[in-house]
Design a protein around this nucleic acid. Structure first.
Length: 876
RNA sequence: GCCCCUGUGGCGGAAUUGGUAGACGCGCCUGACUCAAAAUCAGGUGGUGGAAACAUCGUGCUGGUUCGAGUCCGGCCAGGGGCACCA
């Protein structure tokens, strides 16, 4: 038995079939046990799973199986984020219908996921592109319209003038459309928005209560929401310099303390005043048009050279009627933030300084850093945005920044101009409303009908879902819905007149903003949720996914859940009580002499350490081993999970994914690592086989007393049990793996010793106990092997349905402890004392140590620090 | 450009959250078994010096706080994630 090899392929299929036939992972909503909802971010059906999925789903499955063993009714579902651009790209490039492409991919990926042996309730599978799903999404859109959470307004898009289509930021490469190569323009479209800003304060405040979220994600969201307290200031304009005699310019600032350092005003190119000024100024109009040539991505706007155009208009400083400031139009001022206009203080803002230096506007430092001589403090090319005291600022001189802000606000609030205060304190958010309109076919149709007379009319609920027409073509540019002969024209539900459907579909982030609720009851046809069931399962106890979703997906889902609450579909605000963000899967890269990349399967590695060399298997040509990078098609450094599963089995793939690297960091996929995991699986199989032979004649009853060998085995098993339980709760799977290795090493030693002498009954019993604990511990990670081993140990039930072993805490307590002894913070010796020895005893024992005596050279120690149960430090 | 994270032996990493740096694994070295190889088993393995005991250096760099710093604070360097139409 013990020399036989474990046949993963055969065993895995067999156990998957057993789980399936017995419905082991089907979750009942009426199960009375406490509930636990574990969810991994559902995949986009690209066609094949990748190693990132394997890692993500292996982690979730460990949690699901562990919580099940802990007595919870576990919800662990899977679905498909099935709308999106790649389906349309496939349609354009390969003439496959997006629906067919998507469902083919889903079928392929479902089979792959099933081969991983995940403990999923497949009966709850959903695909967001299915009308039975998006029907409810359309209904909720209308609910949100009624609740005042939806708005139509203009916003900018990347427009490809050749393909006559809107481009995603990723489709804009160096300012050109990826397919057409045409220069991209900014274009304004009227679009649908969810008013996420309505919840800005709430979304910010609630972050503090998301205690089981990583701090970094909460911080990123906090910064993204970007609450700032500032001042809205009405600058008077010199009417002789403005078109149509405009008299005022509103700006928002958080640095009103620096008002005496102002050198210019700047308007966004989209600012109405800029537009008005451009009407009579062709050069300005040309400049504004030039600004719009850039894409809409924030990164590009920030990195672009700061450019401006002097409009000739003058603004008057609020504290000095004789102080006139030039008004520029500048490419770095955003219409979406504040009022779309700023005052520029070059000395204390890096962007303003770059701008000012370019146009020779000068700068006046008005905040002096501590310890600097105000008379000598000058700014050249690095703006100072730190703390300090006000200088060159008349009545503000000497104040702190906070005092100066207060003083400026107080004075301007109480100064009236035209019966209104010149300034008012204002809270501003960086967060913008969520634009959900997409000019694409493969998405959830927005259920609105446009009528000349009645405006935008909601589709009546009994007409939902508005389904996508199947008969579409992708042979021409533009949105197929827009040019469809019969889909678009409809009668107006309000007046019965001629009308047309909204041809925009929803952002796919909408689809993924509530799927987690739908899983609680995916069968109900009448409503998005079965309220009591949704409320019973939600929030998700443990959500697991990539860090790349830290902001958008998670923030949108938090908003959507609140909106669903307003509409009465759920009774909670926060969808995810616990969040875990896992790292990526990376692999080294192989580059050929001609610069092209070779796949890991094409390469043979020789040598070790610094002497590793790689060559193409086919030709023997040497290839260069490059840096370890995220697995990607472009670098060809991907490993196909199918290949791994068919050669090593799912358990080995899962085990390797969970071992070594901490789950929140990147994991480097290596062939050697997989082989190590494979050898370990075989070793476990042999070990459990040996254990079962020894255990076969073990007493059924627990012995009254245990000898030293038996006690050692039991201690090792229970220590591992305690550590693995702790670490699995914290999702530190790599530490669990290390503990399982340790227990395996210790149990192997006991078994090897047992082979060489007669084995007492108590040791047989202890070895059986340890073997069963070991199987239970690795079951969440290698479930198939665990079932196989469990059967070998003589069970006819499933380990998947077994309770977690019970810990005997007494076994973890040692009588004596060994403390490290430091002299001046440097370890010199160990001392072994009774576990409950008091400070004096420990101190005396330590000072008596020869090594300590020698280190002290006969002198008395200055201080002895005894940290109970930890360490002793002697200060000589 | 802005926001966030990470940096520990040849490699992946551990370190009870301020208390023995390098657990565990990979790799490598030595031995056992074998005609031989693989597999397996046993032992060793941070650098430098030393036969050894031991000494000394050591957690990206640099400065600080502390009896004690991988861990806390300041400044740098490098790599990665996000930046609102990729999902």
């Amino acid at each position: 038995m013990s020399t036989e090899r474990y046949n993963a392929r055969e065993a895995e299929l067999r156990w998957q079939k057993v789980w399936d036939e017995r419905g082991v992972f089907a979750t009942r909503n009426d199960d009375p046990r406490p509930r636990y909802y574990v969810l991994e971010m559902f995949p986009y059906p690209s066609g094949r799973i990748h190693m990132g999925h394997v890692r993500n789903y292996a982690m979730g499955d460990v949690v699901a199986r562990y919580k099940r063993a802990r007595g919870f009714n576990v919800l662990h579902p899977m679905g498909w984020d099935a709308f999106g651009m790649p389906a349309e790209n496939a349609a354009i490039e390969r003439k496959i219908h997006p629906r067919a492409w998507t469902y083919d991919n889903i079928a392929a990926m479902r089979a792959q996921l099933k081969s991983m042996g995940l403990s999923l309730d497949w009966r709850r599978e959903i695909a967001t592109c299915d009308p039975s799903y998006y029907k409810h999404q359309q209904r909720m859109f209308l609910d949100f319209v009624r609740a005042g959470l939806v708005e139509r307004k203009k916003s900018k898009v990347n427009w490809d003038p050749v393909d006559q289509t809107v481009l995603a930021n990723e489709q804009v490469i160096d300012g050109r459309g990826w397919r057409s190569g045409a220069l991209v323009e900014q274009r304004e479209l009227t679009q649908w928005f969810f008013k996420i800003t309505h919840f800005a304060q709430e979304l910010l405040d609630a972050l503090d209560r998301l205690e089981r979220w990583p701090d970094k994600v909460r911080l990123m969201q906090k910064n993204w929401i970007g609450r700032s307290e500032g001042l809205l200031i009405r600058f008077e304009l010199d009417p002789s310099t403005t078109p149509k005699g405009e008299r005022e310019l509103d700006i928002f600032t958080t640095r009103h303390d620096t008002l005496f350092g102002a050198k210019f005003m700047a308007l966004s190119p989209d600012h109405p005043l800029a537009t008005a000024a451009a009407e009579k100024n062709p050069a300005l109009a040309k400049f504004i048009a030039e600004c719009k040539r850039h894409g809409t991505a924030q990164e590009l706007i920030d990195k672009a050279e700061k450019l401006g155009f002097d409009t000739g208009m003058k603004a008057i400083h609020p504290f000095d009627p004789d102080w006139k400031l030039p008004v520029y139009v500048a490419n770095f001022v955003l219409m979406e933030y504040g009022t779309g206009a700023i005052f520029g203080c070059p000395a204390h803002d890096p962007r303003d300084l770059e701008f000012s230096n370019k146009y020779g506007l000068g700068n006046t430092p008005v905040v002096c850093p501590p310890g600097q001589d105000p008379a000598k403090f000058v700014i050249t090319d690095v703006a100072y945005d730190g703390d300090g005291r006000l200088i060159n600022s008349r009545f503000l001189d000497g104040m702190t920044i906070e005092q100066a802000k207060d003083e400026v606000a107080r004075r301007l609030e109480t100064t009236l101009h035209g019966n209104r205060p010149v300034a008012q304190r204002q809270v501003n958010f960086r967060l913008r409303d969520w634009g959900i309109s997409r000019q694409r076919y493969w998405g959830c149709p927005i259920p609105i009908i446009h009528c000349e007379k009645c405006g935008a009319v909601p589709v009546p609920e009994q007409h939902l879902p508005v389904t996508l027409p199947d008969d579409v073509t992708f042979d021409r540019p533009g949105n197929p819905l827009d040019r469809h002969p019969s889909w678009k024209p409809v009668t107006c539900p309000a007046c019965g007149g001629e009308a047309r459907r909204e041809t925009d579909t929803m952002d796919t982030f909408v689809d993924s903003s509530w799927y987690f609720v739908r899983f609680t009851d995916p069968w109900i046809a009448e409503a998005p949720t079965q309220r009591e069931i949704a409320d019973a399962w939600m929030p998700v106890d443990q959500y697991i996914g990539g860090i790349e979703h830290a902001i958008l997906h998670l923030l949108y889902s938090r908003f959507f859940t609140r909106a669903m609450k307003v509409a009465g579909h759920v009774g909670l605000d926060e969808p995810f009580a616990g969040l875990f963000t896992q790292g990526m899967v990376v692999h080294e890269t192989y580059q050929k002499a001609d610069g092209s990349w070779a796949a890991p399967t094409e390469v043979k590695i020789e040598g070790a350490d610094d002497h590793r060399r790689a060559a193409l298997i086919a030709t023997g040509e040497a290839v260069q081993i490059g840096p370890i990078e995220k697995m990607s098609k472009s670098k060809r450094n991907t490993v196909d999970p199918d290949d791994i599963i068919s050669s090593y089995g799912a358990d080995v793939a899962r085990w390797f994914m969970l071992s070594d690297s901490p789950p929140d960091r990147d994991v480097n996929w290596t062939e050697r690592g997989v082989q190590g995991a494979w050898r370990f699986a075989q070793r476990l199989w042999r070990l459990i086989g040996d254990c079962s032979e020894i255990a076969a004649s073990a007493p059924a009853e627990r012995p009254q007393a245990f000898g030293q060998s038996a006690l050692d085995v039991r201690r090792a098993a229970h220590k591992a049990l305690a550590r693995v339980s702790d670490e699995i709760e914290k999702l530190h799977f790599n530490v669990c793996v290390a503990q399982i290795y340790e227990l395996t090493n210790e149990l192997s030693e006991a078994v090897n010793n047992a082979k060489q002498r007669t084995v007492t009954a108590d040791l047989r019993w202890a070895i059986r106990e340890a073997a069963e604990i070991l199987v239970a511990l690795f079951h969440p990670m290698m479930p198939h092997l665990a079932e196989e081993c469990y059967a070998v140990l003589g069970h006819d039930t499933l380990v998947a349905q077994q309770e977690w072993p019970e810990l005997e805490p007494d076994l973890l307590v040692e009588d004596t402890i060994t403390l490290p002894v430091q002299v001046n913070g440097r370890k010199r010796a160990d001392v072994t004392v009774a576990r409950d020895a008091d400070q004096q005893h420990v101190e005396a024992a330590v000072l008596a140590l020869p090594l300590v005596q020698r280190a002290l050279e006969g002198k008395r120690p200055k201080r002895v620090i005894v940290v109970p149960q930890r360490i002793v430090n002697i200060v000589a």
